[in-house]
């Protein structure tokens, strides 16, 4: 066998090298009422061996970004601009056939709710075998396939023989582990994990997150976590992007963002997240509703809900600009945002 069964998927890159670059990505869904601007001018860089988080509320475009990276957006979604460079190669203009070769082998995805989409009438192992047959560069014989799936299962903390079992014999946590094993099956360089623990109980969630962290470290993998759960992002990622209404509003080191968010939305989001540690405090509600992306507000998309909005914000769209320490914010008045998130009175 030329390809080792479970390998460190370095792809010739060292930790910290640029692996995936997204530049000014624009993706919109065409509907009868017009274009829904789901991803608007989003840029970020993913390094080798890094865990990156995309956080935001439902409809903010975080899943659309992920699907665009794999060019798997819904039929009515069009990438209207920007580049997605994987190891220097732009994935946007290439043909569908070529893209198929990159999917799963270079970039794979743990889809939201995938743990509930196992086909109940096939053994779990056979369903992973299908992915291997489709994407693995060479044809594996029976024994090799079994061996590889067994190794993958061991990697995600499942018993190797569990591949002969049916999905209903698995608990929720086991099903999600098997989904992760499937995503790992072709040694991708990047895994996109969309809400990987959302439907799971906290204890199982903790186990899955630990498993993902371990795999990331062992295989020197890059993972993009997508979640609405700020606490999960805080725990597992190195760098975080906060998205609002299709735009990246803040991007930087996870520690920086969580200790001192500079964008008013990020600040309010963190201030409205309850926690079981720290003083019990009154949480600041975020007034209003996210905008309609068919007709987003002019200027900054957050301006109708922003307590710091000025006339400039209502007219001019703030660019994502560097404010030092690899920290970027798209806000005209970020200096006015209070430092720290323990706002409000202690109850």
């Amino acid at each position: 066998m030329t390809t080792p069964l479970v390998e460190d998927s370095t792809g010739g890159l060292k930790t910290g090298d640029t692996l995936l670059e997204v530049d000014n990505l624009i993706m919109r869904y065409k509907t009868k009422q017009g274009y829904v601007s789901a991803v608007e001018d989003v840029s970020f860089v993913l390094h080798k061996g890094e865990a990156l988080g995309l956080v935001g509320e439902s409809g903010c475009g975080k899943t659309s970004v992920a699907l665009s990276l794999l060019r798997l957006q819904a039929d009515n979604g069009e990438i209207l601009g920007g580049e997605i460079r994987l190891g220097g190669k732009d994935l946007v203009p290439i043909s569908e056939d070529e893209m198929r070769r990159h999917r799963w082998n270079d970039v794979s995805m743990v889809f939201q709710g995938a743990m509930n989409s196992w086909n109940p009438v096939y053994r779990v192992g056979d369903q992973i075998k299908e992915a291997l047959d489709l994407h693995w560069p060479e044809r594996l014989n029976r024994a090799e396939t079994r061996q590889r799936i067994g190794d993958l299962f061991a990697l995600v903390g499942l018993d190797s023989d569990a591949q002969d079992r049916y999905p209903h014999e698995f608990s929720g946590g086991m099903r999600q582990r098997a989904v992760i094993a499937m995503a790992l099956s072709c040694n991708p360089q990047v895994i996109i994990a969309d809400e990987p623990t959302t439907a799971l109980d906290v204890i199982v969630q903790d186990q899955i997150l630990k498993e993902l962290k371990k795999i990331q470290a062992d295989l020197n993998m890059s993972i993009i976590y997508i979640s609405h759960d700020i606490a999960v992002i805080a725990e597992v990622t190195d760098r975080t992007g906060v998205m609002y209404a299709g735009k990246m509003v803040e991007f930087g080191d996870t520690g920086d963002i969580f200790s001192a968010p500079r964008h008013p939305y990020a600040w309010l989001l963190l201030s409205s997240t309850p926690s079981i540690v720290g003083p019990r405090r009154k949480l600041a509600p975020l007034e209003g509703e996210p905008p309609n992306l068919l007709d987003p507000p002019s200027g900054c998309r957050f301006n109708p809900r922003c307590p710091f909005a000025t006339d400039q914000c209502r007219v001019e769209e703030p660019p994502l600009r560097d404010i030092g320490d690899d920290h970027q914010v798209a806000c005209w008045n970020y200096e006015q945002v209070p430092v720290g998130i323990t706002s409000g009175s202690v109850v």
Partner: peptide, 24 residues
């Protein structure tokens, strides 16, 4: 175990290890 498994929105916070065996 339940409390130590709850993620905390503070990257600097170290949770105690979750001491529990097996599944439900």
């Amino acid at each position: 175990a339940l409390l130590s498994a709850v993620p905390v929105p503070d990257p600097s916070y170290q949770r105690p290890p979750v001491e529990i065996k097996g599944g439900i």
